[in-house]
Each structure stands twice: as structure tokens, then as C-alpha cells.
Simulated scan of single mutants.
Amino acid sequence: MNHKSIRTFVADDEKYSREELLYLLRFFPQIDVIGEAQSGQETVAKIMELQPDLLFLDIEMPEMNGTDVASMVKQMKKPPLIVFATAYPQFAVEAFQLQAKGYLIKPIDETRLAETIAQVEEALCRATNDELAKPLAKLAVEGSDSIHFLEPETIAYVYRDDKSSKVITHTSAYETRLPLKELEIRLSPYSFFRVHKSYLVNTSLITEMNAWFNGAYQLSLKGIREQIPVSRNYVKPLRAKIEL
């Protein structure tokens, strides 16, 4: 199998171990390292933002250990494949119960790393073929007496309004009790990105970004009159996602 690029994230609280793994991964042209983290909470946040294909994950990390991170990440609609890289062999059983694709013991053996990456490639190929064979999924939005099934491509943006979330298309607005975080997970396989604590946008519809105040911006979306706020903390990752 020849997977063009495996978007990869590395999480390890030990700087030396992290740099060693990053160095070894340079010898695999199919691996595209898109980020790294040194704590469990940071890992979960960045995985939600970057949505990699593959996560190399240490076990012992501050704030949240690797198995807890894996349990949270597995709840995503499209979670990354996970390979544990740790100095602790005793956690292997728990790791594979979490459906890990590999369990590498530090110091990492290059041959074992190559075998693991080959297994990851095969798994990604199978997943891609399975996804192509499935009918297109739709977002179910329950109303008072009906359920609307929305194609993700027709959704322009989603925002949180008091105790409900509003899903906006070019023709209608729908209300759902689903929290914004849940909608973010469900829409993660599509072109949606959080630009504000209360807003998700369909990035394929973005036409313009205008400076607002204090480093914040406003987005223009194709076919939508409303301007969408972009918090200053989200400006850089948004630009990294949508720009060539």
C-alpha cells in the first residue's frame, strides 16, 4: 500500500524522547509530522484541532496519562490510529484493549518502528476503502416533531446560543440540544473548524477575513450575510488550515 501522507502527531512529556522519535520519523517519507505536545490535556486539545491520522503517545505524562488520552480520543467520530511509545512494557495489555496499532518500547528499535508504520499504512488503506463504500452520513437535527437530516456540505456554520446550538444552512436555521463540542466531533471528518468558543464554520465557504479589534477577525462566508467572529487565538491555526 502506498499512502501518500500520514498526518502524524507526537505526544511525550520528555523532550529527549520526543526529539528522538521525531528524528527517526524523518526517515519515513510517508510520515508528515504536523504537531507535538508534552502533556495529556495539550494532546487532546491539539488532536481535536489538527485531526491527525496517527498519534504516537507516551503513557506517563502530566495532567492526564496516555491511556486516559487514548480513551478520550477514541470518542471522536474519526479518531487517529494510536501507537504507544513508552518505557513501560506492563501497560501493553491495556493499550491493546484500547485498540492501539502498536506498542513500542523505548529506546525505540528502528526495525520495529518500520513494521509498525507499515501496519498503520495498511489500516489506513482499509479504512479509506471502507469509507468510500459507505453511504454519505448526514447530521441528524431533532426538532419538536421531526428529525432533519442535513448533508454536512450544506451547513455554513454552527453556533452556541444560550442552552441550544443553532445549525445554519443557506436556506434554513435549525436548533438542537447537542452541545457545540459534540457537533464539532461529529463534523470533524468534514471541512469544519472552530474559530471561536461559540462558533464552528465550514471552511470551504470562507471568502474573506477582515480585521476587527484586539487581534480578532470577522469571516465572510459564501452566500451568508452574517459575519462570523474569529477569536485571536484561533486566527493562526485557521490560516494554517485553509491557506496553501
Rank of each mutant, 00 (worst) to 15 (best):
V83M: 10
Y190A: 07
F149S: 05
A156S: 14
L132Q: 11
T154D: 10
G40P: 01
I147P: 05
L221F: 09
L81R: 04
P189M: 02
V33K: 06
V73E: 15
N210I: 10
Q218A: 13
T176G: 05
I117A: 00
D32F: 10
P135R: 01
G223F: 03
Y159L: 10
N210G: 00
Q30I: 07
P107R: 00
E175A: 05
I228R: 05
K134V: 01
K166P: 04
S231K: 01
E122V: 01
M61V: 02
H3A: 11
A127N: 11
F193H: 11
Q38I: 00
F28S: 08
E153A: 12
Q119S: 11
E49F: 02
A133K: 13
T116D: 15
E36N: 08
Y217P: 08
I242C: 12
I168R: 15
Y16H: 13
H3E: 04
L24K: 09
D58P: 04
Y157R: 12
A85P: 03
I47M: 04
R225L: 03
D53Q: 15
L187D: 06
L54P: 00
A137L: 13
E151W: 01
L139M: 14
N202K: 06
Y174H: 15
V230H: 04
S5V: 08
A11T: 01
L221H: 11
K77D: 13
M64D: 10
L187R: 07
A216N: 15
Q51K: 12
E153M: 05
P80H: 15
A211M: 07
G143L: 05
G223R: 05
Q119V: 00
R186L: 11
A37R: 09
D109P: 09
K166C: 02
